[in-house]
Simulated assay, not measured.
Amino acid sequence: MTKSVTVLDYGSGNVHSVCKALTEAGANVTLTNNASNIYESDGLVVPGVGAFGSVMEKLKAHGADRLIDKRLTASRPVLGICVGMQVMFETGLEHGLEAQGLGQWPGTVKLLDAPRLPHIGWSKVEASSGSTLFNGVEQERFYFVHSYASVAWELDIRPPFIPAHLTWSNHGERFLAAVENGPLATTQFHPEKSGPAGLKLLSNWIESI
């Protein structure tokens, strides 16, 4: 049975390439900000392009912050991409300003300490052992476009709860490239721009929801 995936339409760029990639990966895709679709679909994708604070303003303007939290509270799968990953953390620091994120995870998104920014291009990742997202593409490169990231994981998960799968990459310093934590999965890179490896990752996520 084909899985239904809603791509959250809240004014962020790059949504059509995300929709196309998800369709190619096997999902029945709807681009909308309709609350019923957002909650009831098998999976929700939160794309994000631009500044942390701006993305948060747009999410709140559409009430999407509450809808994302409602889905996750009910253990309904969500995938965040690029800034859609960053806003899952508590705080974002950009251009000297501090913005509050969705707070699904503790921690801060900050400017990478790197000789050249933004980080644009194909980079390898250190995939977590047992990762669902990276099954079959552990050694592949993925396409990044960003200057900010989370460089630490601060959520302390202890048995009997299952620890998150953390995948790392490096540009100047080590940063989180992806997180799989219960119903919430995120990637700092753009799977929709990452060729066959990105399509396989999206297919892995779709099959898991």
Rank of each mutant, 00 (worst) to 15 (best):
M1G: 15
M1V: 11
K3T: 12
K3D: 09
V5M: 09
V7C: 10
D9W: 02
Y10I: 04
G11W: 02
G11R: 08
G11V: 09
S12W: 00
S12Q: 01
S12E: 02
S12L: 02
S12R: 06
G13I: 04
N14V: 05
V15M: 06
H16P: 06
A21Q: 00
T23Q: 12
E24H: 11
E24P: 08
E24R: 11
N28W: 08
L31Q: 15
L31P: 10
A35I: 04
S36L: 12
N37G: 13
I38C: 09
Y39L: 15
Y39P: 05
L44E: 02
V45R: 07
P47T: 02
P47G: 05
P47C: 12
V49E: 01
F52V: 05
G53K: 08
S54K: 14
V55M: 11
M56G: 12
A64Q: 07
D65Y: 14
R66P: 04
L67R: 10
L67E: 07
K70E: 10
K70H: 10
R71V: 09
R71S: 11
R71Q: 11
L72F: 12
T73L: 14
P77T: 13
V78W: 06
G80Y: 00
G80S: 15
C82T: 01
M85S: 03
M85V: 01
V87S: 05
V87W: 05
M88S: 14
F89L: 11
F89C: 06
E90K: 07
T91D: 14
H95P: 07
G101I: 08
G101P: 12
P106S: 12
G107V: 08
G107Y: 06
K110Y: 09
D113G: 10
P115C: 11
H119Y: 14
I120S: 11
G121T: 13
W122M: 04
W122P: 08
S123P: 07
V125L: 12
A127I: 02
S129G: 15
G130V: 14
T132E: 05
F134K: 00
V137C: 12
E138G: 12
F142G: 00
Y143S: 11
S147W: 06
Y148K: 09
S150W: 04
V151G: 10
V151N: 11
V151W: 10
A152W: 07
D156F: 11
D156G: 03
R158N: 13
P160S: 15
I162E: 15
I162R: 15
W168P: 07
G172Q: 04
G172R: 09
R174W: 11
F175R: 01
L176N: 08
A177C: 11
E180I: 03
G182Q: 12
G182E: 13
P183G: 04
P183H: 07
P183F: 06
L184D: 01
H190F: 02
H190M: 03
E192N: 03
E192K: 00
E192H: 00
K193Q: 01
S194W: 00
G195C: 06
P196K: 07
P196A: 13
A197L: 03
A197F: 00
L199W: 04
L199P: 02
K200N: 07
L201N: 01
L202P: 00
S203Q: 15
W205E: 03
W205H: 12
I206D: 00
I206R: 04
I206S: 01
